[in-house]
Amino acid sequence: MRRLCLNCAYGFLALGVAACLMAALAASCSAQNITVPTSAVAGEPASIAITGSGKATLYILGPGISTKQEVNLGEDLKLRGDALKNAGDYHIVACSDSCHSATFYVSAGKPASLTFLVHPSRVPVSQQDAVSGVAFPFDQFHNLVFTPQTINFQLSAGNASLLNRSVNTQAGVAWFRTSSGKSAGALQVVASLNDFNARRVVQQVASDPCNLRITGQRNAQGILVQTEPVHDCSGNPVPDGTIVSFTATAASGKSTVDAPIKKGVARAEMEATGSAVISGASGVVMGNEVRVGGRP
């Protein structure tokens, strides 16, 4: 009985050794270990190494790339720069008897361009926090650059500089917000990073009318009312087409006429036989009142 057990033990031992040898032999023919780049940069070549001997099928799956090729284990594999243009995770799978995998990360290269969003395209003058811009730095392969970059924002109208601010990107984005200038016209907005500029133009237009003044006089048809040249509070002429409402209040009732500004002045003719009080308004801005006597 004891001999039988001893024989069994020897048998199991022999089997175990054989299994280990076979496993070792199989392992020597398969991929053992994949060494991938620790810091790869988009567009730059890199190499990976797979230990072992014999041949294997190598799969590379990454952003924008998917390849399958036969490789010799134990040799370095060169990856060309144009195969690594997109930043992100690249998965390497090497299959011979079994499959082994590794992942490496390709980061964006140096900034080569700026994406610059500016709002709005048209803005009234002297508005608080009315102009804003957002800039994203990208490398030459259009990968977003996450390493902090200093972006300079410059706003100018004519020869006057309205803003000159340097902002560091956080998570790949830098932004600003500021008030609009005081004079109507083109507002140049520039974001610059190293030698790269992105230029946008915001049209600044006159704000609401300020100190709206009207005059009125009776003529043969009724009362002719008109504004003085209409400006905003910064002295910019209010654009033609802006509506001015004239309201005549007389004993017979109230009547209103809407007149667009033409060549800086709004003008209207109102019917009123008796005396009337006439007021003008544009948007939320009230003008003065004038009293016009009745027809003699």
Partner: peptide, 18 residues
């Protein structure tokens, strides 16, 4: 860019059969 990159991925996969 998202669309362009994914487009490239799919086209590449169509070629490789992966």
């Amino acid at each position: 860019e998202a669309k362009t990159g994914l487009w490239q991925s799919v086209v590449s996969q169509q070629r490789s059969g992966l």
